[in-house]
Amino acid sequence: MTETTAHAEQPAETSSGTGTGSRSETALERYLRFWNAVTEPEQRRLAASTFTDGVEYRAEIGILSGAQALMDFRNQFVGHVGTASLRHRERPQIHHDRARVKWEILVGDGEGTSFAAGTDVIVLDDDGRISSVTAFLDRAPEGFDPAAHH
């Protein structure tokens, strides 16, 4: 996923009044940049500042634990589909230690072609790092068989 096509123009909406909005917004910006990072050093740097050591990622494809597993998943994906980028479909919503991020994956050069769309529910720790992600597919990729991943 390429960083150049990432879209995060607007700050996240917050409704908590807890003062954690800025930290959460920063974490969500880093999260988007992580998925779009091209080089391994950039991925590692972003992973270290974005995720807790034991971050857990739950999606149709399975449960992944740790930043390295997320990096491997991301790199296998772009190895399979080629150039890809993740972008927000709308402003993330944040309250307390939770965020809801609606995203779309574009594949191909330029503006790309929509591959899939989904929603991530993210849990943030007290330091504003992501401790877990639950990913839902709002629009699965063409030909996706969720039963093949159980």
Rank of each mutant, 00 (worst) to 15 (best):
A6D: 00
H7T: 08
H7G: 07
H7D: 11
A8N: 05
A8R: 10
E9A: 04
E13N: 02
E13S: 01
S15I: 01
S15H: 05
S16G: 06
S16P: 00
G17N: 02
G17L: 02
G21S: 02
R23D: 02
S24R: 01
T26K: 10
T26M: 09
L28I: 06
E29V: 08
E29P: 01
E29W: 03
Y31Q: 05
L32M: 09
F34W: 05
A37I: 11
E40M: 12
E40F: 10
Q43M: 11
Q43C: 12
Q43S: 15
R45F: 14
L46R: 08
T50P: 15
T50D: 15
F51W: 14
T52Q: 11
T52P: 07
D53P: 15
E56N: 05
Y57T: 05
Y57D: 02
S65T: 15
A67H: 07
M71H: 09
M71K: 08
M71A: 12
M71S: 11
D72C: 06
N75H: 10
Q76I: 12
F77C: 06
H80T: 14
H80L: 11
V81N: 10
G82F: 14
A84H: 07
S85D: 03
S85A: 13
S85I: 05
L86K: 06
R87K: 07
R89T: 04
E90D: 03
P92F: 01
P92Y: 01
Q93H: 00
Q93F: 00
I94A: 02
D97W: 14
A99V: 00
R100K: 10
K102V: 06
K102F: 04
K102D: 10
